[in-house]
Amino acid sequence: MTTSARELLCDLMPSFPVRHSGQIYTDTTQFMNINYGDVIALKERNFLVLRDEAERRFGLEDPKYWVKRCRELNSGKRFILKLVFHEKFEQKIGPLTINCYRSPKKESRILDLIRGDERFMQGKTVLDEAGNPVRILDVISGKSLDNVVEDIDMDHRTYFHEKFPGILEKFIGSCEGIKYMHDNGERHGDVRRDHIYVEYGTGDYRWIDFDYAYESTENPFGLDLFGLGSILLFITGKGVHDAVSLTSSPSGLEFYSSLSPDDFFLIFSHRVINLRKLFPYIPESLNRVLMHFSQGAYITYETIDEMLPDLRQGLKDVSTL
């Protein structure tokens, strides 16, 4: 049962237009009904709903109706509330399609695990009146790593010498964050370059979104490792270099034609992973890390522990160029 939020909003946020006052929800099960102007009441805390979150990929907005941008009435602070939504869907990874599940409990458990660790988004879980675990997440002021890298306006050589060492160092910190999860029996589940947020001011790299879960496999950390390899490729190359980007010029086409299958990413078979052929100043040590993710790799990484020493050596060599 819901009641009007008008009185509560008049008391705690008099600047909010009365005509937009909605309902007070103590049970968030029907999250589709909760919209702008409604208030989600959790124990002693009240959150005014501002809008649904949306994921922006490839220029399109995909609304996430179970994720609400809110302002806490008592403190005036902004928060993101993630409501319970159990979903099973197919995820395409290169040539493969796998079942993926959204697990609120997994995310709550990880939020408890990484509390106070600045390598991750922070938040806590509160049960609503119906027992739904609502995740109250701090808003990270910043932008995603892919946007940060793409917005650096310089040629690759200058980027690689001036900006990349700092980016790689922070990325290694992010890898150590994922290792911490793995050491504690958890997996991130959705390691992507837009799931690292670079915080304004501090420049800290922080992982977001831990609610993806998968069926058991023999290599439990494979998906996370693939994601890290994919991010490493992106930041090293300052973007993706593939059939589309390279073949748009005659010289690029000639270069692309000279590559062998071993020069490409194992998962995305048109993406060049042997970046040293494209940018010869990339140290061999760093390129070798990338080549663990190539179609020609005989040995691949099974754990982050195996990858980290190689990455650190790569950083050392990049920093002394």
Partner: peptide, 10 residues
């Protein structure tokens, strides 16, 4: 496939 082996193990 090699891709499946990398992602899921064998």
């Amino acid at each position: 496939s090699k891709t499946e082996e990398f992602l899921f193990g064998s």
